[in-house]
Design a protein around this nucleic acid. Structure first.
Lengths: 324, 324
DNA sequence: CTGAAAGCGCTTACAG
DNA sequence: CTGAAAGCGCTTACAG
């Protein structure tokens, strides 16, 4: 069988409990003994048995990542990218990442529940925010440690969240276009739901009023009535390239006739020309920070619930241009 | 604390070992006793403790999914989609899915190694094929159960693989274009590496020779020299929309002047017009089958290594057209 | 600073 | 068909 703590103990000439303490770098163990133990472990090629450790310590050494119960997860590069970042940070902290997903809310809830009740994970990172659902209610009700990537609407004060400042991003979009001399702007969306839309639009709206510019909200994809608007702020990259194609087909050139700025800096932004001027939302940092926050919560359940705001960065490419 | 097998045993008036057997539906236990146990479990709200079960049984009840050590995973919808499908199948089999990923081969190998040595997973699903690497060598050398999604080049005979028939897909692409009356075809790629390219091209090439048509290989993205070619088979959707944009800019219309057929039926295929005629590779089934095969391997390590070929389906959309 | 012992919650030969 | 017991490989109060 595999080498155990007992084998290491025998080899190092100490008690198994001493080995255990040495492994965890317990302060009561002398450096000399730790060294002996480390050598014995290396000689024998010791790996801990996670099951035994979990059982004895009551900690899983694993976290769960909860995906939204939607069909088109795979269409949004966000999810794979943040999963990679989360796993990277988790690996560095020697914990494992498990997955919870489902097509319906019930499937998802049942998987989350099982994972936690069977003690397979210590806590969760939830990859969708906005309105509360069964899953979130369950996590809150049972006081299960979790952090949300995004901005929850309800009970935000009880939840640790990691997000960008979407309102500021909306404002900066307007600001940047204004700095290029644009005076008639529009915000384009294909949904009127979700905190992301609301915040980005609110930031945009407040800023144009502040700057004394004109700005309208266009909720549509096809045959956009752009009128005399010279610059568009589009909710995300995917929508932006659809909008641009629609305009191009009607003989309206981007960026010569109209500028477009969007959000996310996903693969879609550099897929076809004009490459998009867009905000990079720093998904890697969102992922890293969410793991770190969850680890804090696990180490100290009484830790403050707080919100972490990750900075964004404007990537200027081909879809925006100064007015002549 | 949580309710254990002992509590259930007491409530049902049996021995803990009997509860354990009842849970696993052991054939020696009477239906009457099983019923009693089931009732007691329901009354008490029992959940197994996975750590204890893992320790006692030596099985993790979890599988690892290994992502390729590349940066742009998130750009390919394939990975998120198959991960979802894998998790779905796993959930139905009451096992958990953990993630292994890394930017470099060393990071990846180290994570895979730790996961297995600490007994966190029973086996792996590897999401990339082709040339063997350190990770695959490790899995083979240590006789760790795994299945590959894709087609390995070396030691294919020792590996259980789940894949589409890419060669057949290439042939069918040529066949379909021929059926539309096209006689001068070309295969467009942006790489000359990888089994996927080789197989798809080989199928294409053999088929056009069989049909007595002309066909060339174009390895480039920009300013494609299409000459008098009337139909293009493009390696994947992403490349296809780039190719189409390049042609459009030069006044060549798809599909009026030239037809385009591609592979994968990803989100890119229905993003902008012309929507792509493309092969759906049935990622959901690839995911489900890979879990099933791994489970077989785990249940019976002496099980046959074999290859599962998942069917594909042509989705005819706007980018192909019969010649006049 | 270290050891001996009990215990975490299961599984599974061994008996009967 | 079921029970009693040992054991899986750790952790952690308790002693000294």
């Amino acid at each position: 069988m595999a080498v155990t703590i007992k084998d290491v103990a025998r080899r190092a000439g100490v008690n198994p409990s001493t080995v255990s303490r040495a492994i965890h770098n317990h302060s009561a163990i002398s450096e000399k003994t730790k060294e002996k133990v480390r050598k014995a472990m290396a000689d024998l090629g010791y790996s801990r048995n996670s099951a035994a450790q979990m059982l004895a310590s009551g900690k899983a050494g694993a976290i769960g990542v909860i995906f939204p119960p939607i069909e088109n997860k795979s269409e949004q590069p966000f999810f794979m990218k943040i999963l990679t970042a989360i796993n990277e940070e988790a690996r560095q902290n020697k914990i494992t990442v498990s997955i919870a997903s489902g097509h319906t809310n019930e499937e998802l809830l049942s998987q989350v529940r099982v994972m936690y009740q069977e003690k397979r994970v210590d806590g969760f990172i939830v990859l969708y925010a906005g309105q509360a659902d069964d899953v979130r209610d369950y996590l809150l009700a049972d006081e299960i440690p979790f952090v949300i990537v995004g901005t929850p609407i309800e009970r935000a004060n009880e939840i640790t969240a990691v997000d960008n400042d979407n309102k500021l991003m909306g404002a900066e979009a307007a600001q940047y276009l204004a700095s290029l001399g644009h005076k008639k702007l529009a915000f384009v969306t294909n949904t009127d739901k979700g905190e992301v839309f609301h915040e980005r639009y609110r930031g945009f709206d407040e800023k144009i009023k502040l700057l004394g510019l004109s700005g309208q909200l266009l909720n549509t994809t096809e045959s956009l009535a752009v009128g005399d608007v010279t610059a568009l702020v589009v909710l995300d990259d995917i929508l932006a390239i659809k909008v641009i194609q629609g305009l191009t087909e009607r003989g309206i050139n981007v960026p010569d006739d109209i500028s477009v700025i969007s959000f996310n800096n996903s693969v879609f932004a550099s897929l076809i020309h004009p490459y998009l001027t867009t905000f990079d939302i720093n998904i890697t940092q969102l992922g890293h920070r969410s793991v770190q926050k969850l680890l804090h919560l696990l180490a100290d359940p009484a830790d403050f619930r707080e919100k972490v705001t990750v900075p964004f960065e404007l990537k200027v490419r081909e879809s925006t241009k100064a007015v002549n």
